[in-house]
Simulated assay, not measured.
Amino acid sequence: MYKISEFSELTGLSKETLRYYAEVGLLEPAYIHPDNRYRYYDDGSYFLALMLGKLRALGFTIQEMVKVMEDESFLHMEELLLEKRRKIHEEIHDLQERLADIDAFLESGREEDE
């Protein structure tokens, strides 16, 4: 069993993040001491913590992460990842269009100065 500070160091998730994940039901401690309320995590929690960290790094929202964790078989993981990928491509396209608009606007301003 790992204390929250040890588990935080082991997984790279802050203690605040671990507390929040427990609050929203993403990653419950394996054990909470009844007297001092210290949180303890086990090896089984380690895999889940790493997965949550990776999902967060991939841009998943808390709600999306909850959906993944509720589907304990992870059958829909690929589907969610493909949807996330599609949305990122959309965002890239939108940002490229904005860049083109900015460039065109700057260019039109230069032409007027000449």
Score class of each variant (00 low, 15 high):
M1A: 11
Y2H: 07
K3F: 03
I4S: 05
E6W: 05
E6V: 07
E6L: 07
F7Q: 01
S8K: 12
S8P: 05
S8C: 01
E9D: 02
L10Q: 07
L10K: 15
T11M: 04
G12S: 04
G12Y: 01
S14Q: 08
K15N: 04
R19Q: 11
E23G: 05
E23F: 09
V24M: 02
G25V: 07
L26W: 02
L27S: 06
L27C: 07
L27Y: 08
L27P: 07
P29C: 10
Y31K: 08
Y31Q: 09
I32N: 10
H33R: 15
P34H: 09
N36I: 04
N36Y: 11
Y38F: 13
Y38M: 08
R39N: 03
Y40E: 03
Y40K: 05
D42Y: 09
D42K: 13
D42I: 06
D43Q: 13
D43H: 14
G44D: 10
S45W: 05
Y46T: 12
Y46G: 03
F47R: 14
F47D: 14
F47C: 10
L48V: 13
L48Y: 02
L48H: 13
A49K: 04
M51G: 02
L52N: 06
L52V: 09
L55H: 00
L55N: 01
R56S: 07
A57N: 08
A57M: 08
L58P: 00
L58S: 06
G59P: 01
F60A: 01
I62P: 01
Q63I: 07
Q63F: 02
E64H: 02
M65Y: 00
V66Y: 03
K67M: 03
M69I: 14
D71V: 10
E72L: 10
E72R: 15
L75V: 10
L75E: 15
L75R: 12
H76Y: 06
M77I: 14
L80S: 06
L81C: 10
L82E: 11
E83C: 03
E83T: 06
E83G: 05
E83I: 07
K84T: 02
R85M: 08
R86Q: 12
H89T: 11
H89Q: 12
H89G: 03
E90I: 12
E90A: 11
E91G: 00
I92M: 15
I92A: 01
D94R: 15
L95E: 10
E97H: 13
E97R: 15
R98V: 09
R98I: 12
R98C: 05
L99A: 05
D101N: 11
I102R: 10
A104K: 13
A104G: 10
F105K: 14
F105I: 01
F105H: 11
E107K: 15
E112G: 02
E112A: 13
D113R: 15
E114L: 15
